[in-house]
C-alpha cells in the first residue's frame, strides 16, 4: 500500500472508530453499563461531548469521502474493479452520510421536521451504522478489499 493509501486507510479507520463510538454514545448506555466508569472513558457519558465528537468525525468523514470519490473518478482504476463488498459499503456509507446530514439539518435552530421523518432518520441511521460495522468486520476478517 502506497503512503497516500495508507494514510487514507488510517484516517478512515480512526474516523470510523470515533464516529461509531460517539454515535452509540448518543444513547444512554455507556453510563448504565459501567463503560464510562473506566478511567479515561468518562466522556462517553457526556452527551454534549459525544455530540461534538460525532459532528467532528462526520466532517472528517465527509471530507474523506469527497476526496476518495473524486480521486476515484479522475484517477481511479475504474468502476468495474470495485468489489461487491466495496459497492455494498459505498452504498451504506452514502446512506449514512445522507441520513446524518439530514439529522444535522434537523438539529439546526428553526428547523422543524415531521416527527415520523425524525423517527425514521434515527432508526435508519442506527441500522446503517450496525450494517456498516458488521460488513467492515467481515471484510477485515476475510481480507476483502474495496477494489480488485
Amino acid at each position: 500500500m502506497k503512503t497516500a493509501g495508507r494514510v487514507r486507510y488510517y484516517i478512515y479507520a480512526v474516523t470510523l472508530f470515533f464516529i461509531a463510538v460517539s454515535g452509540f454514545g448518543q444513547m444512554p448506555v455507556f453510563k448504565r453499563y459501567y463503560i464510562a466508569d473506566i478511567p479515561g472513558l468518562g466522556w462517553l457519558a457526556q452527551f454534549y461531548v459525544t455530540h461534538i465528537i460525532h459532528y467532528t468525525a462526520a466532517i472528517v468523514l465527509i471530507a474523506l469521502v469527497t476526496y476518495v470519490l473524486l480521486d476515484f473518478l479522475f484517477n481511479g482504476p475504474g468502476l468495474k474493479r470495485i468489489t461487491r463488498s466495496g459497492y455494498f459499503k459505498i452504498g451504506i456509507l452514502a446512506g449514512l452520510c445522507v441520513s446524518g446530514v439530514l439529522m444535522v439539518v434537523k438539529n439546526l435552530p428553526n428547523s422543524y421536521f415531521d416527527h415520523t421523518v425524525i423517527i425514521v432518520l434515527d432508526l435508519v441511521h442506527l441500522a446503517l451504522c450496525m450494517i456498516l460495522l458488521g460488513t467492515s468486520l467481515y471484510t477485515l476478517i476475510r481480507k476483502k478489499k474495496w477494489v480488485n
Binding site: 454534549y48 455530540h51 466532517i59 469527497t66 473524486l70
Partner: peptide, 21 residues
C-alpha cells in the same frame, strides 16, 4: 451552539476533500 457551528463547518467539509485532492 457548538453543534450549530460545527454544522456550518460541515458545509465546507467537501471543499476540504477537494483541496486535499
Amino acid at each position: 451552539a457548538d453543534g450549530t457551528q460545527l454544522a456550518k463547518a460541515m458545509l465546507i467539509a467537501p471543499l476540504a476533500g477537494i483541496a486535499a485532492l
